[in-house]
Computed example of a mutant assay.
Amino acid sequence: MPGLARKIGLPLAAAALAVLTAVAPATAAGTSGAARQAAAPAYFTMTDITGARFVLQLTDAGKIAHARALLSGETTDRPHVVGRIRKVPAPYNAPWSYHYQPETVDFFDVAIEVCDAVIPYVEDHLDEAGGPFLPGLVWCPWTSRLVNEL
């Protein structure tokens, strides 16, 4: 799907991404947003096809349970990570200059191309994130997978 944004127009691609990320958190775990429960933060390491490691924080009990189920092999559903990034470092995610906003992190099976990028590429192009590259700062690395809980 190279050139998706050029073919259908960046505004339409951004709108599709907004729908994807607005709907996914409320429906992905099969619960409504009101049914979500805050939990003590849990930290997980993810990797991608490059082998780079990236730490994310989860604060939603259902998402923490899903992450643990992925790691234990209890489920293979929605194995990839999606969420909005912040262009500032987090103390738990060295050496990267960005991190996921914990309240936006969720899991997915498939996503549109406009939010896909590997961990080092995001770092190298962080100044461009939020425009045509990662519109809305939504990042969904297609090859992401959790490797452990810290």
Rank of each mutant, 00 (worst) to 15 (best):
116 D>G: 03
9 G>C: 15
36 R>K: 07
142 W>I: 08
32 S>I: 02
64 I>V: 11
9 G>S: 14
65 A>K: 06
40 A>R: 10
125 H>W: 00
9 G>Q: 15
64 I>R: 01
125 H>S: 08
133 F>E: 01
87 K>Q: 12
72 S>H: 02
128 E>F: 06
19 V>R: 15
92 Y>W: 15
8 I>H: 13
75 T>I: 09
39 A>W: 05
88 V>T: 15
110 V>E: 15
104 T>M: 09
76 T>W: 13
14 A>Q: 14
35 A>R: 15
22 A>M: 11
17 L>S: 12
88 V>S: 14
72 S>T: 00
148 N>F: 02
137 L>W: 07
61 A>C: 01
8 I>R: 11
41 P>K: 05
43 Y>G: 00
112 I>F: 08
68 R>V: 00
17 L>H: 06
138 V>N: 04
78 R>T: 00
93 N>Y: 09
21 T>G: 12
125 H>Q: 08
85 I>Q: 11
51 G>N: 04
107 F>R: 00
103 E>L: 15
107 F>M: 02
56 L>N: 03
107 F>P: 01
124 D>C: 09
31 T>D: 13
108 F>E: 05
147 V>R: 03
124 D>P: 02
17 L>P: 11
132 P>A: 11
136 G>Y: 02
143 T>R: 03
84 R>D: 05
6 R>H: 14
149 E>A: 00
79 P>T: 07
112 I>S: 10
131 G>C: 04
85 I>V: 09
72 S>K: 01
123 E>C: 02
10 L>C: 04
75 T>E: 01
109 D>Q: 11
49 I>D: 07
33 G>R: 09
112 I>G: 13
128 E>T: 14
96 W>S: 06
54 F>C: 02
106 D>T: 15
98 Y>V: 07
142 W>G: 09
114 V>Q: 06
30 G>K: 07
149 E>S: 07
130 G>M: 02
42 A>L: 00
71 L>I: 04
29 A>E: 09
90 A>D: 11
32 S>A: 13
49 I>T: 10
65 A>W: 06
50 T>C: 03
57 Q>C: 10
59 T>F: 01
103 E>C: 12
24 A>S: 09
110 V>A: 09
15 A>G: 13
117 A>Q: 08
28 A>V: 10
1 M>G: 15
132 P>F: 12
35 A>Q: 08
75 T>C: 01
145 R>V: 03
29 A>M: 08
108 F>M: 14
128 E>I: 03
136 G>E: 07
24 A>T: 12
116 D>S: 04
137 L>V: 13
18 A>S: 15
131 G>K: 01
86 R>D: 13
47 T>R: 06
106 D>R: 15
149 E>V: 00
14 A>H: 13
101 Q>Y: 11
143 T>A: 08
67 A>C: 14
2 P>S: 14
69 A>I: 06
16 A>M: 15
76 T>N: 13
49 I>E: 10
131 G>D: 12
108 F>V: 09
131 G>V: 03
62 G>M: 02
35 A>P: 03
102 P>I: 14
22 A>G: 15
